[in-house]
């Protein structure tokens, strides 16, 4: 059982993305760390391989400047090795570009399962793993809150508006996992020590026989014209409950015609 986990490395101050005023791209020149949302996928992959009794977890990532801090974190959790694609030609890549690069990585390492988060904390487009599945021609189990192997197939639980679904598909397959699906382990001291010696293979686009100019059909692209802070709602009054705040709530609710 070989499982690849897609890991996004994002700026540490992920509360606040810094946009380059010239290029209007997210600046990624600072230190990057593993997106918290990806810890669930790493954890689930480690458990699936553990239950299978054989195999390995490989983390894959695309990041500038050979950044590997986030990958070391996943390795410290227990992943066996990592593959990183880093190339200046990939600056400002969107979800489709990322999926195109990761599809080439997947073709190279040939996993049985690819796991990714449902969406990243910074970009939150939420489409990359599905674009990857379509490029590979694999089935996908999106928004999974659990993953199991049953009779050689991948099983997932999905909580939707119209109920809870149990889904199944043959391998190879892609799954995206929601937060809270499992409790991700913290790297142990020993794990952190071992992670320093685990291999990270760094690739350029040429190693993958890819040309960034050919990623989109007809030279299709996006042009960001401006980025401004979103309109903020004004704060109202704040009171301290003196034991009668419910009276105030009721009077507002009736003023707003809610009761």
């Amino acid at each position: 059982m070989r499982i690849a986990v897609c890991v996004k490395q994002i700026p540490k101050e992920h509360e606040r993305i810094v946009f380059d005023p010239e290029s209007l791209r997210v600046r990624r020149d600072g230190k990057l760390i593993m997106d918290d949302s990806d810890a669930y996928g790493v954890e689930l992959a480690l458990r699936l391989v553990g239950e299978a009794g054989e195999g390995e977890v490989i983390v894959v990532s695309m990041a500038p400047h050979d950044e590997e801090t986030g990958l070391r974190h996943a390795l410290a959790m227990g992943a066996a090795r990592a593959v990183l694609v880093s190339d200046d030609a990939l600056g400002g890549s969107d979800a489709l570009r990322t999926a195109t690069v990761l599809a080439a990585v997947v073709a190279r390492i040939k996993p049985d399962i690819v796991i990714a988060g449902t969406e990243s904390t910074d970009g939150y487009t939420g489409t990359m793993p599905i674009q990857l599945s379509e490029l590979l021609g694999w089935p996908s189990l999106a928004f999974s809150s659990s993953l199991d192997l049953v009779a050689g197939e991948l099983r997932a639980r999905r909580e939707a508006d119209d109920g809870v679904f149990e889904l199944s598909c043959p391998l190879p397959a892609i799954a995206t996992v929601t937060s809270g699906s499992v409790e991700p382990r913290y790297p142990s001291l020993r794990g952190i020590m071992e992670a320093r010696r685990k291999p990270i293979e760094t690739l350029r686009l040429s190693d993958l026989a890819l040309n960034a100019a050919e990623f989109e059909a007809d030279g299709a692209s996006e042009e960001v014209r401006s980025i401004v802070p979103a309109q903020q709602r004004a704060a109202g009054e704040v009171i301290v409950d003196d034991g009668t705040a419910e009276v105030r709530v009721l009077s507002l609710l009736s003023e707003w015609k809610a009761i």
């Binding site: 993305i17 946009f19 007809d218 030279g219 299709a220 692209s221 960001v224 979103a230």
Partner: peptide, 14 residues
């Protein structure tokens, strides 16, 4: 960024 920023974008040749 979770809705903190608002971007204005158009497609080219898309």
């Amino acid at each position: 960024n979770g809705g903190e920023e608002l971007a204005t974008t158009r497609f080219i040749n898309a």
